[in-house]
Design a protein around this nucleic acid. Structure first.
Length: 421
RNA sequence: GUGGCCGUAGCUCAGUUGGCUAGAGCGCCUGGUUGUGGUCCAGGAGGUCGGGGGUUCAAAACCCCUCGGUCACCCCA
């Protein structure tokens, strides 16, 4: 195929209707739920000083290999945001809103990854964060928000996986145990996992390589290493979810790719997705992140949902078709005057989705346009109607196709009446 | 970053062991109706066969490079 001079870059996509309509609707459903729960919209910049993101974890791929970074004309080292939690924390440290601060957001993020199913270099997320509270009931509220949202848009095959990663105090003890476990039989591990083990033993649990499966399955479980405090919080989260009837599965080996997580960690897996990328959302606590960014030592919890993957999951379940944005009325005018211009303006002023042909096309071509637009009514103004101050209204839905002549002055009322049937 | 598969019209694809002016369906435009869509009929526009190089009398087909897509690993949303 002959390619145009320019194409969308790898990992980026051009979104067009009807995908854009679905996306808009999805974000607005999320907004509705978030606002109903007392969250306010924040709009972080799309780029920050790279230091903001480096705090996410220097051992993580997201930071070490996937950042889009560059030097700006002022000599600053900048990076496009790979996610929005870090920015929200930076905003919190800078603006110091009263706590608990509840913020939601929606927008694109950027990671220099190799694209594949459900993975793009520019991808959209919606998310919510609560900063300034240790209360596990906050964790419950957030998880429920996400779970209800998925249900709201019609997804049924989404599983909630739940784990606790413990605190600063319990983590080192667990890591020691984990390291000891893997090192006891290091020869059995894949080469890549051995490298991971040196950098971040937790992430070895995430390996999907067959040869690692056995050792991963027998690895110690962090829940056994939780402090009393962290253990009690984890119990409380589970109890809260149970009270709300939000189903979850304990996933003792669930780890997340960013290093900042503590305590409650969770992920939403879409079983409808056949691709390897079936996580449609995830989140957890990050009680140390704000301090790392130079802010107060305040705790935070939050989650982000992948908009693109969520929509893919909807496709797999034939859910969430999106709003109908089709044209309702098509104007066919052949006099060469301004009838189409005036009528379109008038109907649009009444909120009726209206369109028309241009370029002086034949009546037949204009009618074809009307049919293709999906409009249920065609308004026809030819020489006869124009002379009489009338408009012909033709119904395009029924096969009988009845047509009636109405005075120009009654047009809007009549059109509204006919559209309601 | 590593690997598998794939690039022919706007879209989905066919094109035999290399061999005529490269095809189909859908879509698009025009006409059949001097003012009427959705069905039907006729005609038409639209292709550097992803790009470059090579082999050959001859390449969409074979070889090399490259670009792009896709899927998996990795990683994650």
């Amino acid at each position: 195929m002959a390619r145009p001079l320019f194409q969308a870059l790898p990992g980026t996509r051009d979104l067009l209707p009807p995908d854009t309509d679905r996306m808009r609707e999805l974000v607005s459903r999320f907004a509705e739920r978030a606002i109903t729960a007392g969250f306010g919209l924040v709009v972080p910049p799309m780029f920050e000083d790279i230091g903001v993101f480096v705090r996410l974890g220097e051992a993580s791929d997201v930071v070490s290999k996937e950042l889009y970074d560059f030097e700006d004309k002022g000599g600053r080292h900048i990076a496009l945001r790979p996610e929005q939690t870090a920015s929200v924390c930076r905003i919190y440290a800078e603006a110091r809103p009263t706590t608990p601060w509840k913020a939601w957001y929606a927008g694109p993020n950027f990671r220099y990854d190799k694209p594949q199913a459900g993975r793009y270099r520019q991808f959209d997320q919606v998310g919510a964060e609560v900063i300034g509270s240790h209360d596990p009931d906050v964790d419950v509220e957030l998880i429920a928000l996400a779970a209800r949202f998925f249900r709201d848009i019609g997804l049924t095959r989404v599983r909630l996986l739940l784990n606790s990663l413990g605190d600063g105090a319990d983590r080192p003890r667990y890591l020691d145990a984990l390291r000891a476990h893997f090192e006891s039989d290091v020869g059995a591990l894949s080469e890549q996992s051995r490298l991971t083990l040196a950098k971040n033993p937790l992430r070895v649990l995430d390996s999907k390589r067959p040869q690692d499966l056995e050792l991963v399955a027998s690895a110690p479980v962090i829940v056994d290493y939780l402090s009393d405090d962290a253990g009690a919080a984890f119990e409380r989260v589970q109890a809260g979810l149970t009270v709300l009837g939000v189903e979850f599965e304990l996933a003792p080996r669930l780890v997340r790719g960013l290093d900042y997580y503590t305590r409650t960690t969770f992920e939403f897996a879409a079983d409808g997705l056949e691709s390897a990328q079936n996580a449609v959302g995830g989140g957890g606590r990050y009680d140390g992140l704000i301090a790392d960014l130079g802010g107060p030592p305040d705790p935070g919890v939050g989650f982000a949902l992948g908009v693109d993957r969520t929509l893919l999951a909807c496709d797999a379940e034939s859910a969430f078709s999106g709003p109908d944005t089709r044209i309702e009325v098509w104007i066919v005018a052949t006099t060469g005057g301004f009838e189409a211009t005036e009528l379109a303006d008038e109907l649009r002023a009444h909120g009726i989705r209206t369109d028309r042909s241009f370029d002086g096309r034949s009546m037949k071509a204009q009618m074809k346009g009307a049919d293709r637009s999906g409009a249920s009514l065609a308004l026809i103004v030819g020489a006869d109607e124009a002379a009489a101050g009338m408009v012909s209204i033709r119904s395009l839905r029924e096969q009988g196709a009845q047509q009636s002549l109405v005075p120009r002055s009654d047009l809007v009322t009549k059109v509204k009446e006919m559209l309601e049937r």
